[in-house]
Design a protein around this nucleic acid. Structure first.
Lengths: 212, 212, 212, 212
DNA sequence: CATGAATGAGGCTTCATTCAT
DNA sequence: GATGAATGAAGCCTCATTCAT
């Protein structure tokens, strides 16, 4: 009676192809590309996209979710291994964390779209799932930090602050390419810093307060 | 020289009317309103808008600049009065600062548009001016913090981090209205916090590390 | 010969299921539903629909043919029993006919689609068959009216006029649901009449002229 | 302060150009043409169409309203001049009316779209206006028929029936071009009649009953 | 200066139909 | 026969911006 059940795998593959194409185009253009372009970059027809995503925005939230999932996955062992009784916890975490962020690709770029662009045309359910995943990730990672000796919620709060600092710093220090040349001006000194360097310092500062 | 002065005043008035209309509409709709709507809300014709702003986005950057200017203006006396030799500096600042933010209207909402929406269609010069203002504001306010006894740049850095934490936290905790009902779910606990409360705690933490 | 029979029955069953589903959805939405919806309402797959109908429109013409067949089937005994020598023939027919129409479900709604929507994408052959059926129905029923004493074609003509009056009246008095509330306005009085009441009067008038 | 008030005239002109273009295309294709085609046929840009009509469908209702207005305008003198005390009223009206219909262009073709196609995407207000106009036209023309000696509503009712018969007959006798060749078949005799001839006969029958 | 009519690029989404399995 | 994934044509409408008056 019809087709075998290769379906589920196949479906996942297709989604992947589309996500990769979208990701690629997003990087190139720094803006949500038209669906037509995504489709053709994926070697599929325009209509096919809508078999896998209900909305263009849903594609990008999916991308964002992937990035977050990866980040949290990488964060877990890091937090587990973190020896919080030794001095220098903050510095050690800041360094490792910055590396994670560095490896996380366009996470921040995508995340910055979140509140403004993506929410505009996103099926409610998709938005909800995204927020739930985010909350869950923070809660679980937060628990790893508490080690039973801290007040419940302490870890999640610290991670929330960490995330906020990261996202905000990225936005403050990100410049459109066209503006890059102007960065030379001394008056712009505060803003012409290297994001990752600055991130490490900021996180260390935040965490050092949390571990005293 | 009679003409230009009158003209200049008039020009400023017109800009103001347009900015107010745009601001108002933005608040109502949570999205950049069409130029036609801004114009008619201001009691002007569509084409007139372009006599005062080159781009729709320029309107909103102007709004953003205003907000920042106000914030920095309010920040200066606060920083000047801040007695950094007393204990509790961080807490005192956090409290006062949170109040400023609370009073600053839609600063954050607008600021979140920055890197993604506004930069997309902004005359280079406008973008540049905005970044310069921001940098200058931070540098100057930062100097107030240093009081000569700190390394140059120390204050600006702290303020940059403060700003980043504020902006990022706002984005993390902001929910589209449509999602508000779902906030009840316990799984979303981490994200269902009150922004200003959370902000005060985060800033205090950040600053407490800076003052040890 | 065992196979084809079973097959033929089966085929007829399938068609029926699809027709019923289509009919149902059409009533609910007042518009030709997407094939996907018809299929799933029938518990079948989209592709399957095309094993039984060449075109979406063909489904609805089939529905229409069914309705007409029923109407003519009910009309025959009525016309046969009609005593045209008695006075009041027109009134008696009008009453009985209106009842038939009332019982005929969505015949008119579907019929109104005919010239505009359905013809747009209908295999020529299907359109032809439909028109033939209609013509035949009228001719045969018309013959019943003539009773040999009238000129050939007289009956069919009267029935054609009867049908036309019915269809046209339905369209004139049909209002989209969204407009229903506005029917209160006195200016709309002419159009806010009950279709069946009006139909009976109109048919009686038409027929009374034919029987003098 | 800006533009003179040539506007209103100009606006009317533009509407006319668009309506004519739409009308023309509709005749050619027997289907609502794409807005892009209407625009280019009118020598205007696509977006311009939406300065004059909110919806594609609104264009066609406007066309329909025009046709009706013309028909009613022509009907008034005809009804006024109609000597209802002479015998042969029905025949005289039927002849004159049929001529009006013949001259009315695509009125019927457009009218047949009404309940099905047009209502699908029509601003409520436009639909309402259309129905009001129609009702008003019938009511006023109906009053002319009553000459004070008939029950109020009698005339409007007769006209409603007249309209219904006209519209329905047109639909019954209209064949898509592709089917024209098949009309030769004797089985289709009932339906292969000339619309205007048939209309005159039908109207005469209807009216002859009304004037006895 | 101010106007607002005109422009036309831009982009999403729906859906009938096909066809490989 | 049945399936449903894939296709890609089709078409509406919005809106920033320009420019003739």
């Amino acid at each position: 009676m019809g087709r075998p059940v290769l379906t589920e795998q196949h479906r996942e593959q297709r989604r992947r192809v589309l996500l990769d194409a979208a990701h690629q185009l997003y990087r190139e253009r720094n803006a949500l590309p038209p669906v037509a372009d995504i489709a053709s970059a994926a070697g599929l027809a325009k209509g096919t996209v809508y078999l896998y995503f209900r909305t263009k925005e849903e594609i990008f939230v999916a991308l964002l979710e992937d990035s977050f999932a990866q980040l949290f996955a990488a964060l877990a062992p890091l937090l587990t291994a973190l020896d919080m009784d030794q001095p220098g916890t903050a510095a050690r975490f800041a360094r490792a964390y910055t590396q994670l962020v560095r490896d996380s690709g366009d996470l921040l770029q995508l995340a910055a779209l979140g509140n403004t662009v993506l929410e505009k045309n996103l099926p409610l359910e998709a938005m909800q799932r995204f927020k739930l995943n985010l909350a869950q990730g923070m809660t679980q990672a937060g628990a790893l930090l508490e080690r039973g000796t801290r007040a419940p919620g302490w870890g999640a709060t610290l991670l929330l602050q960490t995330y906020a600092l990261t996202l905000g710093l990225w936005q403050a220090l990100d410049f459109p390419d066209a503006l890059r040349p102007l960065l030379q001006q001394p008056a712009l000194q505060v803003l012409q810093r290297d994001f990752h360097t600055e991130l490490e310092a900021a996180i260390e500062r935040l965490w050092s307060a949390a571990f005293n």
